[in-house]
Design a protein around this nucleic acid. Structure first.
Length: 571
DNA sequence: GCCGTTTTCGGCCCGACTGTTTTCAGTCG
């Protein structure tokens, strides 16, 4: 699929046009089109072939032509020309906090700055302060921005932000003149990475609340401070924004600050069409400015003729249209999951014994727990030989006899070898309660070979689940070269469930592919890939990703009663 | 550049804060 490639080119065109000083609405048009392509659950090449580009929302005549050229030739003349007008590194300057297209253009035009290193030097030399609109403070802020960008690459993983957010929220709840408080922003939507953390509160004492907010022990620096908005930088590099609004605006503000930006833009344009004005203070009559609703999010959605939209769905991927028709799926809830399939024990590279894992699973309230250790060829992770695996099956039988309130399932995470064969014989595989397969070596095969390798694995009759299907590690390793559509189709044909690996740096499959798999009739299975009992709680992030992929309870094996799961696995 | 219960031209989401100004442009979300 070339979808991401096409979207990236459109985003870059928008950035370049911004720097060129093109009108805002033109560059926005490119970004809207890019977002549409990015969120498609269909291959753009097929859409081009069938002459359906023009029917995509936000894609008109001009951009249609450009997409066609890009898909058919792999290049775009217009983009190449535009790119030649500016040096290569200029776009990277836009990712520095505080620098937008106007300032970047001025830096380039007046000082000839083309990349981050040159900008850093110019700041240190005090060259920026003479430019219109720049000063000494700007220089310092840019230097800080560069430092921050290099330290954190701008975003943190969901689990880090989740912990920071909850701890901060607990601290703020101790302020006794606070009425309401919620996490908002991309953390509330449970995106896989979080740029900064948004917290919303309502209080009749905003000044005192802001004073209390900046005294949090983990605060490194206060970035800005006002009556309604204050931002701080935590010691771990995460930025936290607190917004304070009145009670009558709380729902509208929560809706607004939860985003996504694209969801909000769409919401507001619907409000306008229906004769309203929507902002963070409420829903107002467009003509008279009279306040209509705003205390709760439900009120806002309902008054606009929509059903309530869960935060995880708010990415402008069709949820607004579905809510208008009252056709949103009832997505899986966080307490629907009855157990975990993907847990490593001391038998391979896990740090806890099966008994400890079982005790913790019981405490969580699970009705089953699946132990899936590595297979024999994965020496680095102390993969089990067939003999050892047989012994492990016996140990799990013993543990099951001692425990009536939880069922322990013995599985494996069996390696798919480069030739597509599996790392255990069928004789052994058939003795297990379930079989995960996964890629753990030779990641750099070409697309055709890698796709064939994985599909060969799935064709084995004893295989139940495909672990971390794309192999990506967020921020560290790209997905393997695979044809995800072929994999999804093969999963349906071979009755293999695709995993949503809940480990925070994997979250694999991701939300878009999950939605795609569901639409193709494939079921999914959640696994934490826990290597210690503290990782069992990562399940939350897997469920969040399932919710972002529009999954319902029935789409996820972990929500079924254990009797039914055993029946399904025996087939 | 896109789009149409305000429509084929003229809008396009909108408010807060900062730094640089002396009334506002730029950035952010």
């Amino acid at each position: 699929m070339k979808n991401q490639f096409v979207a990236d080119v459109l985003y870059k065109i928008a950035d370049l046009l911004d720097i060129k000083g093109e009108i805002y609405f033109k560059t926005r048009a490119y970004r809207v089109a890019a977002q549409t392509i990015e969120n498609l659950d269909e291959d753009i090449e097929i859409i081009v072939r069938e002459n359906r580009i023009g029917s995509l929302p936000g894609v008109g005549e001009g951009i249609s032509k450009k997409i066609r050229e890009l898909v058919e030739t792999g290049k775009l003349e217009y983009f190449e020309r535009l790119r030649k007008e500016f040096p290569e590194g200029l776009l990277s300057l836009l990712s520095i906090p505080g620098l937008g297209p106007r300032k970047v253009a001025s830096l380039y035009k007046n000082l000839g700055i083309t990349n981050i290193d040159e900008l850093r030097k110019a700041c240190i030399d005090g060259k920026l302060r003479d430019l219109d609109g720049f000063g000494e403070i700007t220089e310092r802020n840019i230097l800080r921005g560069i430092h921050l960008l290099e330290k954190t690459s701008g975003r943190v993983l969901l689990n880090v932000a989740y912990l920071d957010g909850n701890n901060y929220q607990e601290y703020l709840k101790k302020f006794d003149r606070i009425d309401k408080i919620s996490i908002a922003g991309s953390l509330r939507r449970m995106r896989e990475t979080i740029g900064d953390l948004d917290i919303l509160a309502s209080s009749d004492y905003p000044d005192e609340l802001m004073d209390y907010f900046v005294k949090y022990p983990d605060v490194q620096r206060v970035l800005l401070k006002g009556r309604t908005k204050t931002s701080v930088l935590l010691k771990d590099g995460v930025q936290v924004d607190l917004r304070v609004v009145g009670k009558e605006s709380y729902g509208a503000a929560l809706q607004y600050f939860t985003g996504s930006k694209e969801h909000n833009v769409h919401m507001r344009s619907i409000a306008i069409k229906k004769g309203f004005k929507l902002n963070e203070y409420g829903l107002f009559d467009k003509k008279t400015d009279k306040y209509i609703v705003g205390r709760t999010e439900e009120e806002v959605y309902n008054r606009l003729g929509m059903s309530y939209i869960e935060p995880e769905l708010r990415e402008n991927r069709g949820e607004i249209e579905a809510a208008l028709e009252n056709k949103l799926p009832r997505i899986i809830e966080y307490d629907d999951v009855k157990g975990d399939f993907h847990v490593h024990s001391t038998w391979s590279d896990g740090s806890d014994t099966i008994e400890t894992i079982v005790d913790n699973a019981k405490k969580i309230g699970y009705s089953f727990i699946g132990i899936a250790d590595h297979s024999q060829s994965l020496k680095i992770a102390r993969g089990l030989s067939e003999e050892k695996l047989i012994k492990k099956i016996a140990e799990i039988e013993r543990i099951n006899k001692k425990n009536n309130d939880i069922r322990v399932l013995c599985g494996t995470e069996c390696d798919i070898k480069p030739d597509g064969s599996l790392d255990y014989s069928k004789n052994v595989l058939k003795k297990l309660d379930f079989v995960y397969i996964g890629i753990h070596s030779k990641f750099k095969m070409n697309k055709k070979e890698m796709t064939r390798r994985i599909i060969s694995g799935m064709e084995n009759e004893y295989v139940d689940f495909l672990a971390h299907p794309t192999g990506r590690l967020i921020g560290r390793r790209d997905p393997y070269e695979i044809d995800i559509e072929q994999i999804i189709d093969a999963a349906r044909e071979t009755n293999t469930l695709l995993e949503i690996n809940a480990f925070p740096d994997r979250l694999d499959l991701n939300d878009i592919n999950i939605k795609f798999a569901k639409e193709r009739g494939v079921k999914l299975v959640l696994g934490t890939d826990a290597h210690s009992i503290s990782h069992l709680h990562f399940m939350r992030f897997g469920i969040a990703t399932a919710r972002r992929g529009w999954l319902e309870k029935k789409d996820v094996l972990n929500t079924y009663p254990i009797k039914e799961i055993e029946k399904i696995l025996q087939k």
